[in-house]
């Protein structure tokens, strides 16, 4: 009797494992099969010659270049905000904060990590409504707003990874600096931060990856289907994930559908690569202390 139930559970376990592998393979394989044919310069630039498009001399119609650049600017801006702040917070929580403060501030970080991205987008949207009523009647959703909201979204990842990678440093090394008379900051700067740098880098890359794939935030904070390359931080913009969402719902012909598949493949490659780099860095950072 026990044998039978054992077999059933074993079967179910293999079934779920196999199902997961199959699903992952189908998602990736399907995109590659349908998308690889269209991975060329025309996907990026449409009919515009690529030199002119890159230099910004001629606008691109039909290609995903504007969306690509929009995502690039978005990721760049949000990382420029989230990564320094996140690393600073992580350092504070790991090294400076008293136990009570750490638990309190840590709770806010957890809350931020748990906030759904659509709520973050709605926050940006209400902030604009608020600004319109008070200081800036001209305010509208724009690239800068989207980048700020995305920065809030990825901030907790950077904070937590910085914190854990500092905490993972073994106790003797943590005390090394003090033993030669360093002050706390000197110890951080010369001993702890260099030791934790690999883990912190993986956090930063992970943040970049998440910033490039999120759609719900930008949906409410200024992404549009046709905007061209944003001229300033206060323009509307295009983005790769939104392009995919838009094409899935409103493709008009097979050409656009093919573009949707190719764009998905491009986005999958970008965030997949970033993700793999981050995981490898994190693994190697962890191994460093385990092997001791």
């Amino acid at each position: 009797m026990k044998r039978v139930s054992d077999r059933i559970v074993t079967g179910a376990a293999w079934l779920s494992g196999g199902g997961l592998m199959l699903a992952a393979a189908v998602v990736i394989g399907f995109l590659i099969l349908r998308g690889y044919k269209n991975l060329d310069l025309a996907l990026l630039f449409g009919d515009t010659p690529w030199q002119a498009a890159i230099m910004g001399e001629r606008p691109v119609f039909g290609g995903i270049w504007p969306a690509f650049m929009g995502t690039f600017y978005l990721v760049f801006l949000s990382s420029a905000m989230a990564i320094p702040i996140g690393i600073a917070s992580g350092i504070y929580l790991a090294e400076y904060a008293s136990r009570r403060l750490r638990s309190l501030l840590g709770f806010f970080v957890d809350l931020l990590a748990g906030t759904p991205s659509i709520v973050m987008g709605l926050f940006g949207f209400t902030a604009i409504l608020f600004l319109r009523k008070t200081l800036l009647p001209e305010a509208q959703t724009c690239l800068f707003l989207a980048a700020a909201c995305i920065a809030l979204l990825v901030l907790p990842y950077v904070i937590r990874i910085t914190e854990t990678s500092i905490e993972a440093i073994p106790e003797p090394l943590r005390l090394l600096g003090y033993s030669v008379g360093f002050t706390r900051w000197r110890n951080l700067r010369s001993v702890l931060l260099p030791l934790a740098s690999r883990g912190m880098l993986s956090g930063a890359i992970l943040a970049v990856g998440r910033a490039s794939e999120d759609t719900a935030v930008i949906l409410l904070t200024g992404v549009v289907a046709h905007a061209g390359i944003p001229g300033s931080m206060f323009d509307k913009f295009e983005a790769l994930p939104f392009r995919i969402y838009y094409l899935a719902a409103e493709y008009r012909n097979l050409g656009e559908l093919d573009q949707g598949f190719a764009t998905s493949l491009v986005l999958l490659c970008i965030s997949g690569t970033l993700f793999l780099i981050a995981v490898c860095l994190q693994k190697s950072a962890e191994m460093r202390w385990k092997r001791r």
């Binding site: 992952a24 189908v26 998602v27 990736i28 399907f30 995109l31 990856g209 490039s212 794939e213 999120d214 759609t215 994930p241 995919i244 969402y245 899935a248 949707g260 598949f261 998905s264 986005l267 999958l268 965030s271 997949g272 970033l274 993700f275 793999l276 995981v279």
Partner: peptide, 11 residues
């Protein structure tokens, strides 16, 4: 966990 949500949706 690294696959973008929008890609799951699209597929």
């Amino acid at each position: 966990t690294g696959i973008p949500t929008v890609v799951y949706g699209f597929v």
